[in-house]
Design a protein around this nucleic acid. Sequence first.
DNA 1: GGGGACTTACTGAGCGTTCACTAAACAACG
DNA 2: CGTTGTTTAGTGAACGCTCAGTAAGTCCCC
Lengths: 230, 230
Amino acid sequence: MSTEPSQAVAAPAQRWRSYGPLTLHPILQHAMEAFNEHGYHGTSVREIAGRVGVTVPALYYHYENKQALLSTLLETSMRDVLDRCRAAAEEAGDDPLPRFSGMVESIVLYMAHRKGLAFLDTEIRSLEPANRARYVALRDYLEHMLLDTVQAGIRQGTFTTPIPADAVRAVLIMCQGVANWYRESGSLTAEEVAERHVLLSLGTVGYRGAFSGEAVPAPRPRGATRRRQA
Amino acid sequence: MSTEPSQAVAAPAQRWRSYGPLTLHPILQHAMEAFNEHGYHGTSVREIAGRVGVTVPALYYHYENKQALLSTLLETSMRDVLDRCRAAAEEAGDDPLPRFSGMVESIVLYMAHRKGLAFLDTEIRSLEPANRARYVALRDYLEHMLLDTVQAGIRQGTFTTPIPADAVRAVLIMCQGVANWYRESGSLTAEEVAERHVLLSLGTVGYRGAFSGEAVPAPRPRGATRRRQA
DNA sequence: GGGGACTTACTGAGCGTTCACTAAACAACG
DNA sequence: CGTTGTTTAGTGAACGCTCAGTAAGTCCCC
């Protein structure tokens, strides 16, 4: 275990990169796992209760119903990725290239580090209309943030895609896809996957320098880079 | 506008581009629609029967069980897209650029024209292990076809991505994503969406000419190009 | 009259949810 | 300190309903 630098105000600039172990109410934690294994409709409240180690009514003491479990999980997740993406964008400043790169990196890091939550995105269909509307609004906001940056890059001449809206959608879809295939036991760390997706995304938006030498021009400070052993 | 060579035997070379109305056994058709609306576990056999307009046992006369409906649908779909992609690759020949472009085009055309079937991909989780294994094997085969072509393009110097396997996965994910957001009532035809995704994909695999002038170098013959009115 | 394409009528199991009730912890006060 | 009132976090049993699936009978056409 690495010794955390004891600080009063905990490095605000890098907060979007740091991922501690996921701390969720045990009920949410187990609901998340069950939903990911069998889907929302494929999971019974009895199974969730069984995983938590309590009886069914105990679930209803803490959450209104099964739907509230899914809705809470999805909204928590979307708000977290949005916050981190916003933080990454702020840190990068107004220059479209590092700004776009940082946003993509933050999103992919989330998809890998919070795979369990991110993968629940496949369950939006099971949200009741009101809950779904709130979720989709957050997701659209994320898309607009990215699109604004790509369009700025086009005006500047950095990005050359003639179809920015399609490119942004494609980028978001490929980032979201990380939550589907990424395995913690795989050969790449979350950070490496993020780096690669920055590269792929830059190609998708038509950044000319994407595949020549240094793709991400701003080297990022790293304390105690984690490396996997296998 | 190029003149099509008139052929008696209904253009076999273009068969991967042509999409008639989807003809499926009514039971499969309605199962597909129900699965897409509520998911596999969210759909009851009663609902499927109700949509078809028959009683529940009539379903069991034609199909072994609910799982067989999903499995049949998914495998039919995957085989169709594979066949079309293979046909597109054959038609394009060995040159990696048109070959890759044709494959991507064929896949995206499928995702848009057969959205209902393609969208079922989200339900693989609900396949029993044996059925899932068969489906995944087909999907992996498609991925390898694309990867071979991209690697050939890299050897040739046409594609420049340093991470071809990641690029191919990303391309397939963004193609699959079309089935999620494409609407027939939208502003783009399936053909236009396919064209755009060829462009995006070329950027993703690091094709340098992707965003300068003619992106898809082989102009394709088109008889009676359909245009949407809105 | 024989078989294909259904129907009616039903089963046991499981679903989300709610009921009435309680053990343990805590706060306030005489 | 000991009692009382209240809150937190549960329990076991059961509700009404729906689930996937089936046994046996019926219609109809070749």
